[in-house]
């Protein structure tokens, strides 16, 4: 492989991996802290993308659309947690799976009612629609660099939130010892609501910033959901570091898989997961129980 092509694919892989991190970190926080398996998490990614599409069409400004979309996503997260997710805390995984599966059908079909089943594009903002020339024939779009930059900032923000803030401390304590947190008078219900809304916002945000390069299309949520599951399985539930490394690994494996093994492109990430299960079934960074 030409060095420049390799570099481009490498950057694409990293960018895809960072995007996956946004979705998967929400999943893993919701698993790790609330004990909820949320199949509808991919739908939030889709919701984000369609919000970006709708608000950009209305306002003509992607930045403004993202702000409006984020606000809508947070409200969606709050409402869902209060109305439905809360019922699931005391229930078996099976019920969590089925209820959130029902949510997927609802979101998918609402999408079909509101936006139809066509693929839609979202324009890249003027000031970011340039490319950095690498050679005479190859260049790299600035927008992708910008996505990676924003994601890296969010990763740093997550680290700060989890490891340095009071909320993060409560989150970590809540993950390891629910009774203790409650006996300290910390309102765990509020933490759960906040964590869920944060997860929804992260997934929706990923969908919004990905919309201009990946476009918006039916089924986009399920595709990212299953890949995010693979990320979480490899990274280990509740570990932000594990999720980050795993997301980058899967992002690179998927990107290079499409170039090097086009015949098996759809399967690459699952093969990585299978190998990982043979090697370390408990996940890369999962603390052994």
């Amino acid at each position: 492989m030409d060095l420049n092509i390799f570099l481009i694919q490498f950057l694409n892989g990293i960018q895809y991996g960072l995007l996956l991190f946004l979705v998967a970190s929400g999943l893993t926080l919701i698993f790790g802290i609330m004990g909820i398996i949320n199949l509808a998490h991919g739908s939030f990614y889709m919701v984000g993308a369609y919000l970006a599409f709708a608000f950009t069409r209305a306002t003509g400004n992607l930045g403004l659309a993202i702000l409006l979309g984020l606000a809508a996503a947070v409200v969606l997260g709050l409402v869902l947690e209060r109305a439905l997710i809360r019922v699931l805390y005391q229930r078996d995984h099976l019920y969590q799976v089925l209820l959130t599966y029902g949510l997927i059908l609802v979101f998918e079909e609402l999408r079909s009612v509101l936006f139809g089943n066509d693929v839609h594009g979202v324009p890249i903002p003027q000031w970011l629609s340039y490319s950095i020339p690498l050679t005479d024939t190859l260049s790299y779009p600035v927008y992708r660099v910008a996505i990676s930059g924003v994601c890296v900032a969010l990763v740093a923000g997550m680290y700060y939130l989890i490891n340095r803030t009071r909320l993060g401390m409560m989150i970590r304590a809540g993950a390891s010892n629910r009774e203790m947190v409650q006996s300290l008078g910390i309102n765990i219900k509020l933490i759960y609501t906040a964590v869920f809304a944060l997860g929804v916002a992260l997934a929706a945000f990923a969908g919004m910033i990905a919309a201009p390069i990946a476009s918006v299309f039916p089924g986009m949520g399920n595709q990212i959901l299953i890949i995010s599951f693979v990320v979480v399985v490899i990274g280990g539930i509740g570990s932000i570091t594990g999720t980050l490394l795993s997301a980058l690994l899967i992002g690179l494996a998927d990107t290079f898989g499409q170039v090097l093994l086009p015949e098996l492109a759809g399967m690459t990430v699952y093969l990585v997961m299978a190998l990982m299960l043979l090697w370390r079934p408990q996940g890369m960074f999962r603390k052994s129980a």
Partner: peptide, 29 residues
């Protein structure tokens, strides 16, 4: 043999992922 090395939430995710792998195997071929 692979998925039963996990349990709980991992089991749910991994069974889904392997079924998806077979799906792509058939879909892409």
């Amino acid at each position: 043999f692979l998925v039963l090395r996990t349990s709980g939430i991992y089991f749910i995710m991994v069974t889904l992922a392997f079924a998806q792998m077979l799906f792509f195997f058939i879909h892409d071929s």
